[in-house]
Structures are given as structure tokens and as C-alpha cells.
Write a protein that binds this DNA or RNA. Structure first.
Lengths: 227, 227
DNA sequence: GCCGTCCTTGACGGAACTCTGACGCCGGAG
DNA sequence: CTCCGGCGTCAGAGTTCCGTCAAGGACGGC
């Protein structure tokens, strides 16, 4: 869940933000002065900070600098000041965005989403979906199958078939569904394709292809992949 | 130097931006419609994009989507519309910031700086910029390839291709993805380009280009770089 | 304006992949 | 027991895909 730190000394603004954020399933911490804010930021490691510049104890820009000393967490500044100088100062101190009050909640939330989004790691990052069995390992993102210390090469069709089965691990996948997902929507009766490629997969992946443990045939219905 | 792509159909705004940006030592490209913009973005690889939503040929949000299909470059949207919906739509489509006209040049430049700053890699980042294999060494940051005691010369396209593959070490990269990342989003079927340049890379880097160990072909799917 | 570098394009042989038909096995029904 | 439908296996034909080469064109530097 995304964690937001709201820093503002006006209770009604904090309340409005907290309600709206929680309704959208954010986890929210709130601070009403700079010192508490810096402390909370360190303790709670938020994914994004919403900061009002007008705080009772210290200048908002100092809070930005305090955060930027050790973290690159996105900072979204709120302020009643419309002056260009203020904005420039805050942005150059390390803020990511600057919204003037009064602000629209929709807009603020959209800017928040944008800030969170770009701080996320690239979707094709190292978080690979890996499926493990006793005999082999499937990495769906890298399109890799590892077995007995070496990589197994699969043809496009074999991959596609394996992918559909693995995504439905433990579930029965009907022959029609397999044919349509791998060969296209106009297929559905060419069960011989399935027999050929299922045999291929078993030969490449099963310890004993004649007695498959992972690619199970359900006669008359379809196939099932089991870990 | 930081490269900016300005997309706007109003000549006076483009002029003002170009003058101000160049004075601050940015490198600037300009496009006055969406199609040119997408093409330029692919060709010039800007570090940040300034996009006016009101374009003659296509919806600005479409331009955002077109860019986001293949790049995470920061996009700063300009618009005459103050409506909250417009902002939310643009931001959720993938824009990083939204500035309403008329805007102050100082503020815009500050937002630009903020956008560029946060897209910069972490100074002391742990991302190992150097990739080692048995035969050669790739230094992504220095854009250098070392092999057998000497530097290997690569053309821009060869380098770009190598970069995409190395950044996805071990993962299969589809031909479409390679084409789009190296040649631009409008490419996707010109697999002969890939064949030619993959051969170049192999000739320059593999010990035995006819039997590549590092640049592996996965027929019908794509290529994979292995250490 | 010339030259070198780089990118694009087309053609071709060979390799890899998909499709297809034939055959045998097995279990259940008649 | 025999027949039959569903499944697994195999190998060959046809097609697609890939590596390689060479020529033409665009671009920038001298």
C-alpha cells in the first residue's frame, strides 16, 4: 500500500486530505509542524510527502532541505502563496510539485498519483514472476526455463502454451481455451495441435515424459499444470 | 547538456521558450504538431518534454500516450484549460506536471529543473554500470566497450541496441521492443534491421560470431543477452 | 565538392519452426 | 472379443525466420 505523509498545521485541510486519501486506500500519517514531520518521515518512510509551506515552527523550504538531505521521496508542496519566487525557491530546494491553495481535490490526487507513479521502479524491473517445480523453473518475464542446471529452449508456440497453463496453475484449462489463446480465436477443434505441442513440452520439461507429473491430461476436457 | 523537446503550435510561445531555454544552456528541439513531436522524440531522445495540449493534428493526451508507450521521459504539460478534469486526464495519462497558461517563465523553468532533477540517476546509485563477460566489458555510463585490451568502436545504432540488451541481461527482449526502443515507436516489423545490426554486434564482440554465446537468438521471439 | 562513416534495403541459402498425416496404445462400450 | 474414440508419438513437407553479403543513399567533416 502507498504511504503518504501529510504535513499541515490547518486541521481542516489535514482532515480533508486524510479522509480522501484513506478512501482511496492510501496509508496516511499526519504532522502539524516541521519537527514532527521530519521525525515521522524518518520513522515511517512514506512513499510521498504532501507539505504545506506555512508551518508554525520552521520555514517549509527548510523541511524540504531536511528531507532532501537523505531521501528522494516525492514532495508535493501546498501553499497559499501564488508568488513565482516562492514556487521557484521550493522547487529548487527539491520539491517535486507545487499546488496553490485553494486546490481541487481531484487535481491534487492526480498530481499525487503522478508523483508516486514516476518514483516506482520500471515495471519490467527485476521483480520477475517465477514459478518453481521439483524439476524445473519458469520465469515468465524473462521467458526463461531452467532445468537441471541449464536453460531449456522453447519455440514460440511452446512458450505460449506453457504460459497459458502456468498462469492457470492447478486449474483445468479446456482444449478450446488453449487453442484460442495460443492459435487464435478462430481455432477450437484442432486438438491434434495440442497433442503435438504438449508432447513437446513434456519431452523438454518432464523427468519422465511418458508419465507426466506436471502437465496432466484430463481426457475429453483439457490439460492442467501442477507444481 | 540537457535536451528539451518543445511541442506547441503557437510560434510566439515556442520562440519565447526556445530563447529562454537556450540562454540557460539547454539544447532545444521544437515541434508544432503531434506527429512531428513523436518522431522527434524518438530520434532525439530528449531529457524532458514540454507539451502544449492544444495541437492541430491530434489530442495532446494522445501524444502523452504515444510517448509513454516506450519512454519514461518527464512530460511537462502546458495548457490554456484550467479545468480540473483536463489536468487529471493528462496527469493520469502519464504527464509529470501541468502548468496553465499564462504561465510565468521563472516558474516553468523551475518546474522543468525539478522534472529533470528527479529523473536523474542517483549519484551514488548501486546500479552497476559495468557489465562483464568472459570476452568483453560494457560500461554503460561511459558508453565504452572494452575487449581484449582495447576499446571497440560502435556506431550509435549498435550502441543503442547493445544498451537495451544489456539493461535486460538474461531476459528475452522481443524484436518489437528492440525496434521500438532503438528505432522509435513507429517501428515494429522491420526485423531485417535487427538482423543486420545484431550481426554487426556479434562480429565486433563475440569470439565466434557464427556461434554466438552472448547474443542469443530466440527464433520467432527476439534476442537475449547472456553474460 | 569529395570522402568516409553510417544507415537502409534487397536478395539468397540455410536453419528453425509449424503443420499434417499415419500409426499404435489404451480404456470403455457393445 | 471387437470396435471405437481419445490420446501420445513420430517423421516428413511446407513455410517462416534468420544470418550474411553487397549495393545504394544520407549525412557530416575536411
Amino acid at each position: 500500500m502507498t504511504r503518504v505523509l501529510v504535513i499541515d498545521d490547518e486541521p481542516q485541510i489535514v482532515r480533508a486530505l486524510v479522509i480522501n486519501l484513506k478512501a482511496r486506500h492510501y496509508e496516511v500519517d499526519a504532522a502539524h509542524d516541521g519537527a514532527t514531520a521530519l521525525q515521522l518521515a524518518a520513522a515511517r518512510q512514506p512513499d510521498v510527502v504532501v507539505l504545506d509551506l506555512g508551518l508554525p515552527d520552521m520555514d517549509g523550504v527548510e523541511v524540504i532541505r531536511g528531507l532532501r538531505g537523505w531521501t528522494r521521496v516525492p514532495i508535493l508542496v501546498l501553499s497559499a502563496r501564488h508568488s513565482s519566487d516562492e514556487k521557484v525557491e521550493a522547487l529548487d530546494a527539491g520539491a517535486d510539485d507545487y499546488v496553490t491553495k485553494p486546490f481541487g481535490m481531484d487535481e491534487l490526487l492526480a498530481r499525487l498519483r503522478a508523483a508516486v507513479r514516476r518514483s516506482e521502479p520500471v515495471p519490467g524491473g527485476e521483480d520477475d514472476v517465477i514459478v518453481d517445480t521439483a524439476e524445473f523453473t519458469v520465469d515468465l518475464a524473462a521467458k526463461k526455463v531452467h532445468r537441471g542446471g541449464r536453460d531449456v529452449r522453447l519455440t514460440p508456440t511452446e512458450w505460449h502454451l506453457l504460459e497459458v497453463l502456468v498462469r492457470n496453475t492447478g486449474r483445468l484449462v479446456s482444449q478450446k481455451q488453449l487453442l484460442q489463446e495460443v492459435w487464435g480465436p478462430s481455432y477450437g477443434t484442432e486438438t491434434n495441435y495440442l497433442r503435438v505441442y504438449m508432447a513437446q513440452l513434456r519431452r523438454k520439461l518432464e523427468a519422465d515424459p511418458a508419465h507426466p507429473r506436471h502437465f496432466v491430461t484430463e481426457p475429453g476436457m483439457g490439460y492442467r499444470f501442477e507444481k
